[in-house]
Design a protein around this nucleic acid. Structure first.
Lengths: 237, 237
DNA sequence: CCAAAAGTGTTAGAGATACACCCATGA
DNA sequence: TCATGGGTGTATCTCTAACACTTTTGG
């Protein structure tokens, strides 16, 4: 019982953002074997002097090319099937990150390319997207499925949606986050009542946003409030 | 970037049950260094040919002494602080298990002793319990705190409470599960309406239970139903 | 002045809260 | 027959779903 077989410990990241009204995730094209040329979630090995969360933050900065990542990070779960990496025994602590719209990523050190993908195009491709949709390396498709479900669920009972928008933001912007993640827009009136009625969800400013299209009222601007939970939750669909 | 420092990967288990109306957890007294003589969550190293969940099931059988463990198991989260084990770099994939009242456990191979502890006596000891309450080894206190919070939360929006009672069970028994986990009893009438009104939560039988004390009506017996979620959730407090 | 986008009001109904009350059983 | 525990009923209140309506702005 004093055996401890050696494992490599990695972190993988599902980094989500909203682009053009669609929930999107950052993928990298692998430059090395295994799965060279295939698309995968960004990630890397945990260093001897850091924990998994520190490793995830480090990769987040490396892969997005942003020094001060403006978003949110949390652990998702650990994937440990013995054959998940053909090279050796690798256990991966997957994380979920959320951010407001980020610049186009730069390909990292060991990645051939990096870009944003619309999540639905990867997981439920229809029409033209079905041709383009790549298979993901390793068990990353499963990680992506679990990560999306985590985000969907957390929008219901937390104020996490505000991590998808840059401050200051308008309520219609925030509502578009829910629309993108859930696939269907929450009722306008009920949405506003819920957000404004939840103490500390958003903090009003006295400034107005700029017009969205041609014509239309200018929305009020808000900042993130200190609240983290929404009780009772917003309901999906 | 092609370095993979070697880690040991372990599983730790927070095994909960309800004993005498209190949420209880199984601890083992460590027989070996580090932390010899201190109490800890049961656990062990992941073997080369199994994943973390299989390792957790294996430990569950070994530590409880039960061949066919009757309860529920899920991954909690992974703890990976570099100094969490003084011997070497150990990453632990913690799990939560729930079971109906189990027999007194047998001390495992590398444990000096094993017994059930009332969780509140460990985490918020008052009065006499404060003397007895041991400090837990490693970061197991934190794991226990997180595990209890997971269980509390899941009772709200899932049918998980039924994993704490042996089939067939009565509704008052099930209600005592909520009372033990939340610390306060849900309203009797509302509780029944919620459980019976949630399709597939419980399945009625035509048998009656045996009397609890001296006097009192005999409760109807039920079995677990196929439902897993409770929508909208039961509310705590 | 019209269309588009933001914001407000209103009504019906579901569900929860907080009880009071009735039933079955053993001593 | 009474205490004990199981089970039912109900008035009130809160919140939400659904939808109609008003306001502000650009062209």
């Amino acid at each position: 019982m004093s055996e401890h077989p050696p494992f490599a410990v990695a972190v993988d990241l599902a980094i989500f953002t909203i682009r053009d009204g669609a929930l999107s995730v950052l993928l990298v094209e692998r430059g090395e074997e295994p799965y060279a040329g295939q698309w995968a979630l960004p990630g890397g090995f945990v260093e001897p002097d850091e924990d998994a969360e520190q490793a995830a933050w480090r990769e987040l900065h490396e892969e997005t090319g942003v020094e001060r990542f403006p978003g949110y990070l949390e652990q998702l779960r650990t994937y440990s099937a013995p054959d998940r990496d053909p090279r050796m025994r690798v256990v991966s602590v997957a994380h979920v990150a959320l951010a407001p719209d980020l610049p186009e990523p730069t390909a990292g050190t060991d990645a051939a390319d990096a870009r944003w993908w619309v999540v639905d195009d990867l997981l439920e491709p229809t029409g033209a997207a079905a041709e383009e949709a790549p298979e993901l390396a390793f068990d990353h498709r499963q990680i992506l499925v679990d990560a999306r479900e985590r985000v969907r669920a957390k929008l219901e009972y937390t104020t996490l949606a505000t991590e998808f928008v840059a401050e200051p933001f308008t309520l219609p912007e925030l509502r578009r986050v829910y629309t993108a993640v859930w696939g269907t827009p929450p009722d306008l009136g009920n949405f506003r009542r819920k957000v404004l009625g939840t103490e500390g969800f958003v903090i009003p400013t006295d400034a107005h946003g700029s017009p969205t299209g041609s014509g239309g009222r200018r929305a009020l601007l808000y900042r993130r409030g200190p609240a983290t939970v929404v009780q009772p939750p917003m309901v999906r669909g």
